[in-house]
């Protein structure tokens, strides 16, 4: 076996220096956010800036005063959980059918599903809002959740995954007399765990960070998600940066923690969707 190619000598240091500069640009803003979040407004707006904070932890408390942060946190958790659970179930059901069952109109139906994937979200929004208004769902958790339960992308992604599983598996199960539902549930789903994990991670990420839809349907602060609540603070009359930094840090922390814990899965999930999606 030949040796893998070596970078030219001396290149290694240059590589690390470049990567370190890059990493500093990526992480620096977060550090500055943290430092600012512990300053008084007066100190944060000092020229030249002070680097060490005043350790003013009460800024974090002020976030709760400025926003119903607890309610919004709960709304975001519930919305994210429901959308993710719903998509995993519904998308895997449809994906299994498209990948493994034969039925008239399969190609056509799948084409219709794909067409949804091509349309940018603003095109749905006005009628979706009207539906929510007609049903009296505005300013409710239901409005946040329901349209997000369905995903053409999720069906597409999981179908790719199911197509990659060996055909012999379900043929064997059929011989044993299993019906489609049992094959889906007991044979396919357990094997599809990496695919489900990838879709789950993407859905959590998308739901937690979603702004456009929550902003439109839930305008009552207590019914907002963190993303929309935080966004509502910006504007002409509120630029208390230390408190804003504290709030934005708190709001993004859960997903950052999740990422740190499940880093490998996140990266694999993204790479998977990039390769399959």
């Amino acid at each position: 076996m030949a040796e893998p190619p070596r970078p030219p000598r001396g290149g290694r240091t240059a590589t690390h220096v470049t990567l370190l500069i890059g990493a500093a640009v990526m992480v620096g803003p977060f550090l500055w956010q943290f430092l600012t979040s512990l300053k008084t407004l007066t100190n944060a707006t000092r020229v030249p800036p002070t680097f060490l904070p005043d350790w003013r932890w009460s800024n974090y408390g002020d976030v709760f005063e400025l926003l119903p942060f607890g309610d919004q946190f709960l709304n975001t958790v519930l919305m994210t959980a429901a959308r993710t659970a719903g998509q995993l179930l519904f998308c895997s059901m449809a994906a299994y059918a498209f990948a493994r069952l034969r039925f008239p109109g399969r190609g056509l139906l799948f084409g219709v599903f794909l067409s949804v994937l091509m349309v940018p979200p603003p095109l749905f929004v006005i009628p979706q809002y009207e539906i929510m208004a007609d049903l009296g769902w505005l300013n409710s958790l239901t409005a946040l959740i329901v349209p997000g339960l369905f995903s053409a992308f999720g069906v597409f992604l999981l179908r790719q995954f199911f197509l990659g599983l060996p055909k012999e598996l379900d043929e064997a199960a059929r011989l044993d007399g299993a019906g489609p539902l049992r094959i889906y549930w007991s044979v396919m789903l357990p094997l599809a765990r990496p695919g489900l994990l990838a879709l789950g991670i993407l859905t959590v990420l998308w739901s937690w960070n979603d702004l456009f839809w929550p902003l439109i349907v839930n305008t009552d602060p207590e019914q907002m998600t963190l993303s929309a609540g935080l966004a509502s603070l910006q504007g002409q009359f509120q630029t208390d940066y230390p408190v804003l930094m504290a709030g934005s840090l708190l709001a993004s922390l859960p997903v950052i923690v999740l990422f740190t814990v499940m880093q490998r899965h996140f990266i694999q999930g993204i790479a998977f969707s990039g390769n399959k999606g």
Binding site: M93, A94, A97, L101, E130, I131, F150, P180
Partner: peptide
């Protein structure tokens, strides 16, 4: 087999129809 397939597709299919496809036409 076809019946099962339609049943499995139904939730996402209906959801996409009501909340995505129909709205595009309406827009």
């Amino acid at each position: 087999e076809a019946a099962w397939a339609y049943l499995l597709i139904a939730p996402t299919g209906l959801g996409l129809a009501v909340f995505y496809l129909w709205p595009v036409l309406q827009t």
